[in-house]
Amino acid sequence: MRIHHLNCGTCCPLGGRLFDGTSDSAFGHIVCHCLLIETDAGLVLVDTGFGTRDVEHPGRRLSPFFRALNNIQLRPEETACAQVRALGFDPAEVRHIIVTHLDFDHAGGIEDFPVAR
């Protein structure tokens, strides 16, 4: 078994150290930690981060208030789909998704893996 740590979304909310405990600037730096696990039964993704649709059209699902409050940095390379590809896998190889909770920064990318359960 091999486990890959992925950053599937970055938020930089105003408040710096109050949010992340370490930032010296006015803005914090918080990442959405996701895991890609290689198993004998295929790939398992724990959380999905923001999805490709969130990056391409942020206003469709993410309210302006939520985006502004969290100062979300929507980067195509931070989607789980892009990171799975960067590791040399096809996103269709992701067989299972475990979602820890249903916030957009943890479950927004579910639709990027339509064959996963």
Rank of each mutant, 00 (worst) to 15 (best):
C34R: 04
L74E: 04
T39I: 05
S23C: 00
F50P: 00
L74A: 06
V46S: 00
A116T: 07
E77T: 12
A41L: 14
V115S: 14
D54S: 08
V94Y: 01
D54G: 05
S25V: 08
A41M: 11
D103P: 07
R67E: 08
V99Y: 03
D47C: 06
N71Q: 12
G9I: 04
E77C: 07
A86W: 05
D24S: 12
C11H: 13
A82K: 06
C12V: 12
D24M: 10
I98R: 02
C32G: 15
P58N: 03
R75M: 14
L43E: 01
L74S: 01
V55N: 00
I37T: 07
F65G: 10
G108T: 03
C8A: 13
I97S: 00
F50Y: 14
D90H: 10
A80K: 05
T79L: 02
E111H: 12
L14F: 14
L87G: 06
D47S: 10
T52K: 15
N71T: 11
A107Y: 06
V115A: 13
P13W: 06
G28T: 05
A86H: 02
T79D: 09
N70A: 10
Q83T: 03
E77M: 07
D20T: 00
V44M: 08
S23L: 05
E78S: 10
P58G: 08
D105L: 13
T22P: 06
P64T: 08
C34L: 07
L62I: 14
P114F: 02
A116E: 00
P76D: 09
L43A: 00
G16I: 04
G21P: 00
G109I: 04
I37K: 05
I110G: 01
V84T: 02
L69S: 12
N70D: 04
N70Q: 11
E78M: 15
T79E: 08
R53K: 13
P64E: 00
V99D: 05
S25C: 06
